[in-house]
Structure formats: C-alpha cells, structure tokens
C-alpha cells in the first residue's frame, strides 16, 4: 500500500540524485537496494522478475509523478531502435523536495540523512553493479 511517506521518500530520492536518473532499470534497482539493504521504509512490493527485482507499484507511482508534473520524463535515443527513459524533478518537483526536506528533516532527520547519503553513493555505481547488488540484498533473483 502506497503511503504519503513513500511519495515523500521518492521525491527525496530524485532530489538527492541532483541530476537526471538514467533509465527505468536504475530507479527500480536503486530503490530496491535502499529498501532491502539500507532499510529505508519504502512500502513498494518487489517481485521476482525476468530482469531481477521489479515493483509495478513503483513503476505506477513514477508514472503518476510524471502525470502530475513533479517528474519530467525524457526519452533518449541510444541507437536507431533503442530508447532510454531518463527522469528528473521538474521545478514543481524541486519545490516539493525542498518542502519534504524541511518536514521529513524535522520528523525523521536520520532517515532523510541516510536516504540522501545512500542515494548519492548508489549514483556512483554502474548499472551492472546495482542490478547485481539488488538481487543479492533482496534475495530476489532473476532468470538472466
């Protein structure tokens, strides 16, 4: 069940990246690691999937944040027939991040600090690294 805290934490995740997040896979695996390894209390249910841990609730929430204008989705053409979806906070999203930082910072200062710190660390990892780590720390494997 998605709660207000999940939305706040997702906004803080994108805010902590402080730049675009490249690819939907990246979002799925980063949030999975934050949930299972770093114990950030996301409610998104992750399932075992062909490509490793995957949460349809998280994917739908991202769609809703795009639809409501808090996230912008940019389609990058990587080759003639492959596109990648990048995401970043819009101006309205950044405004919400600032508000979330204040509110969450007052209520759960350690949680906010940890989320921001861990997210920045994850940002430095490559995609194969986060894919592998997400499988390891969630115990959710994949076929490939």
């Amino acid at each position: 069940m998605i709660k207000a805290l999940d939305v706040g934490l997702i906004i803080a995740f994108f805010g902590s990246y402080n730049s675009k997040v490249e690819g939907r896979t990246r979002i799925q695996k980063d949030i999975c690691i934050l949930k299972y390894r770093d114990k950030i209390p996301f409610n998104f249910e992750f399932e075992s999937h062909y490509y490793g841990p995957y949460s349809s609730e998280l994917a739908d929430t991202i769609d809703t944040l795009v639809a409501t204008g808090l996230l912008k989705q940019n389609i990058m053409r990587l080759s003639s027939d492959i596109r990648r979806y990048d995401y970043a906070l819009t101006e309205e999203g950044k405004e919400m991040f600032q508000k979330t930082k204040i509110t969450l910072g007052k209520r759960e200062p350690t949680l906010l600090k940890q989320l921001m710190h861990k997210t920045r660390k994850l940002k430095q990892m490559s995609i194969p690294e986060v894919v592998s780590l997400s499988k390891k720390c969630s115990g959710i494997q994949s076929s490939i």
């Binding site: 207000a4 706040g8 609730e57 409501t68 204008g69 819009t90 309205e92």
Partner: peptide, 19 residues
C-alpha cells in the same frame, strides 16, 4: 488536469491518487 500547475498536491493526496 490533476497536475502541479493546477493544484498544490500533498504527498498524502498523491499517495491516495495512486493507491
């Protein structure tokens, strides 16, 4: 349209919109 330009939605509203 339910977006941030028309409404200042809270995290609770966004969560309920999704859920």
């Amino acid at each position: 349209e339910l977006n941030k330009k028309n409404f200042k939605m809270t995290t609770a509203f966004l969560a309920e919109l999704e859920e």
